[in-house]
Each structure stands twice: as C-alpha cells, then as structure tokens.
C-alpha cells in the first residue's frame, strides 16, 4: 500500500484531467485507469462562474481524492496564492506545486519551488513538488517540509519517457523511505513500466492518456503497465548478462536414436 501524507492509496497511477476530447471520455478514462487520485488545475475563471459546477461538478461526482495543481504559475507569489485558492475551492490541503521557470520546456524553477514549498508547508499544506531529477534540489525540498517528491522523467507533455535513467536511479537510491512519484514526460505504457521497475512508488500522467487515439483504452493499458512494473520490481529482476545462458541444460540430453 502506498502512503502519501498518512493516506493509504492502492492505485499507483495518478491521472491528470486536462485536454480530454470530452468530460464523458475523461470520466470513462478515470474509471478505466482505476486511479484514486486525480489532478485538477485551478483556473481563475472558475471563481467567476455562475454555477461553478459544470466540469468540476462532474469530477466531484467520482468521489476521488483531488490533487489540485498550480499549473501555469511562474513565481513564488503566484504559486502560493493559487495553492490557497485551490484549498478553498477543492477543500483539500494537498497541493501539487508547480513553478515554471522556462516557457518552452516548462522546466520547473527549482529555486522558487523550494521557497514556495517552504511557505506552503509552514501554512499546513501537504506539498507534492513537481521537480527535476536533481538530487540536491530533492534534498532541499524534503528539508522545506515536503514528504513526497515528484521528479520529471522528461519535459511535460513531451512523451519522451525516462531520459536520464542514471539520475532517476540515483534519486530513488538516495531517498529509500520517501514516496517518489514520477511526474511528466511519460508517453507510453512501457515508459511507465520502466520507471516502476526502477522502484518508484507511482506515476502521474495526463497527456499520454488524454491525447491518445482512444483515451479510455490507453488508461487501462497504463494501469496494467504501472502494475506490472511495480510487481516486477518487487519480484527482483534479472540483471543483463553479456553471454547467452541457456534456459534448458545443453549437456546430458537424452539421445533418441
């Protein structure tokens, strides 16, 4: 069982809710993924909404745990303000903290991230920081009061999959007791399985499912891949060898003449 800020979670797949062809497809994809946590981004326009329901009303009807995010924030102040608004709108102290440092790569501004994490953790938030695979930044985030880490494996929406396996191994190895969720950059189920095989605790996806030809079927494929990767890691995999090793003995064969 995965424990995130004292909450037990059985699904190791977290799903984002943006960019689906329709809310109906999104709802079906969420069900097919068996996720228990969905991320939702707060748009300022929501507060001006007459009914305020619509899209958010549909998501609420699923009765899942919501992880609001601060997507699109570029400064500490913006991110903190958005987190506070999200706490009111979604009635949760969980926040996926995203502070973007570069517009093209959507790379996190790790300095602002650490600062915002410190402010929010002090304010009682349970912070899920979206960060790079940098080890030192991860350490600073833990010091700032985060109990969970969310490193990228490639830029958001890039679908490139794990680019720096060495860095991912290293971050996993250095913080064995910390729940680490690989967030961003996963394009296909094999990518999700690969990072789970490295021993990560969970995977967060959005575009890979939302923009798939059949999002519902893809959600189910990812659920299986995440499960397979997790199971494989705990079953202890073979390390690659240089030489062929026959799976059946080649000597002492019975001879039929």
């Amino acid at each position: 069982m995965l424990k995130l800020y004292d909450v037990d979670i059985s699904s190791r797949l977290l799903l984002g809710t943006a960019q689906y062809p329709s809310p109906a497809t999104l709802m079906d994809a969420i069900k097919a993924s068996q996720t228990e946590i969905i991320t939702v981004s707060l748009r300022r326009e929501m507060s001006g909404s007459k009914s305020g329901d619509g899209f958010w009303g549909l998501l609420r009807s699923l009765e899942l745990r919501v992880l609001p995010n601060t997507a699109g924030c570029h400064t500490v102040k913006e991110a903190v303000l958005t987190a506070q608004m999200a706490r009111d709108v979604f009635s949760t102290d969980w926040i996926k903290l995203e502070v973007i440092g570069n517009h093209d790569t959507l790379q996190p501004d790790v300095f602002a991230l650490v600062e915002a994490a410190r402010i929010l953790a002090k304010d009682g938030f349970k912070v899920f920081p979206y960060t790079t695979d940098d080890l030192v930044v991860a350490e600073r985030l833990l010091e700032a009061g985060c109990d969970v880490l969310m490193p990228w494996c490639a830029p958001i929406g890039s679908a490139m999959g794990p680019l720096n396996v060495h860095a991912l191994r290293s971050i996993r190895g250095h913080f064995p007791g910390v729940p680490i969720i690989v967030d961003a950059g996963i394009g296909r189920p094999s990518h999700a399985a690969a990072v789970m095989e490295l021993g990560f605790d969970a995977v967060l996806l959005n575009t890979a499912v939302a923009k798939a030809g059949n999002p519902v079927s893809m959600a189910s494929a990812f659920a299986k891949a995440v499960g397979a990767g997790y199971q494989a890691h705990h079953a202890v995999m073979l390390e690659p060898r240089d030489l062929a090793v026959p799976s059946t003995p080649v000597i002492g064969k019975a001879v039929f003449t």
Binding site: R43, E45, M46, G48, S49, K50, G54, F55, W56
Partner: peptide, 8 residues
C-alpha cells in the same frame, strides 16, 4: 477553451 460558464 476554458471549462467555465463565466462570461466576464
């Protein structure tokens, strides 16, 4: 395309 019925 913004999920909101706000017309401001």
């Amino acid at each position: 395309m913004i999920e909101s019925d706000a017309s401001g």
